[in-house]
């Protein structure tokens, strides 16, 4: 593992002054960069402390969300009150695709099909269950009560291809947005939804971990826990620094991390020793 704070950051010279790029689009001067690096070090120390705490914490926080007691092993989980945030085992993540929000019927239909494939991929990976409540697709409400989350079109002006939520977000913020750029993206469109659903079941971006290239966008890692070693092929890794992939496939290391949180797939069968 390398210390990302020691990694040389991209330099940009503006009017003779050198700035360093962090967070993807933030320029810091040398003094600010020093402060930033110190902050990152402090964050890592806090994360280690949280990991220690996780070894002893157990319990639930209700609302179908369950912080897991044991730290689980290329994915980055979310910590809350010293425990890993996940959906309660057995929770069926019901969703709909709000047809009326899509300007084109074909867009709606492709999202329905790609969601089916992306949810099938996660359900074949670990013990999470999804259900498409088709009767809610024609709802006029933006938040049909019979689903955990709606998938809907939102024109963000290309600010994202798709956007999602985390299990511990408030109920009214649980939704997946699809930007028009989704229709023309060079990324695998099922893969984009696999990535967004990864957030929805509690996984943060892989490329924010130490070991990831410095050119990858930074985020605060406070409140996260390493579930496996850093995995540049993770479904949760952006296409940056020559790593990640446009397929956004669920890697073998992702599978290990996801099963540590959710157990094995519920759709298969298990052989238990007699």
């Amino acid at each position: 593992m390398t210390d990302s704070s020691e990694v040389r950051r991209p330099e940009i010279v503006i009017d003779g002054q050198v700035f360093y790029r962090v967070e993807g689009d933030l320029l810091l001067d040398a003094d600010e960069l020093d402060v930033y690096i110190e902050a990152q070090k402090a964050l890592r120390a806090q994360r280690e402390a949280a990991r220690q705490l996780a070894r002893t914490g157990v319990g639930t926080i209700g609302s179908g969300i369950s912080p897991l007691g044991q730290p689980s092993s290329g994915l980055l989980g979310i910590m809350q009150d010293g425990r890993i945030v996940r959906w309660e085992p057995g929770t069926v993540l019901k969703y709909c695709v709000l047809r009326k929000t899509f300007p084109e019927r074909e867009w709606y239909e492709s999202v329905v099909e790609n969601m089916r494939r992306a949810t099938d991929d996660w359900s074949a990976t670990c013990g999470v269950q999804f259900e498409h409540v088709e009767t809610a697709d024609d709802s006029d409400a933006l938040r049909p009560p019979e689903v955990v989350f709606p998938v809907r079109h939102l024109d963000s002006g290309g600010q994202f291809i798709a956007a999602a939520f985390f299990p511990n977000d408030p109920e009214n913020r649980r939704r997946v947005f699809i930007d028009p750029s989704y229709q023309t993206t060079s990324f695998d469109r099922v893969g984009v939804l696999r990535h967004e659903l990864g957030h929805a079941i509690g996984f943060r971006h892989e490329h924010i971990r130490s070991g990831a290239p410095a050119v990858c966008p930074d985020e605060s890692t406070e409140g996260t826990v390493d579930l496996t070693q850093y995995d540049p092929q993770s479904v949760m890794h952006y296409f940056c620094g020559g790593l990640g992939s446009r397929e956004l496939a669920i890697s073998e290391i992702d599978r290990v991390g996801a099963q540590k949180v959710y157990g094995p797939p519920l759709t298969g069968f298990n052989l238990l020793a007699a």
Binding site: G24, L142, L154, S156, G157, Q159, F160, I161, A162, A163, A164, R173, F177, H195, E196, H199, H205, P217, E219, Y238
Partner: peptide, 18 residues
């Protein structure tokens, strides 16, 4: 970047989060 969702404003941060 700023986006409006149902009359609420959010910043697009971490690439794909509101």
């Amino acid at each position: 970047p700023l986006v409006e969702v149902d009359a609420e404003s959010f910043r697009v941060a971490r690439g794909d989060q509101l």
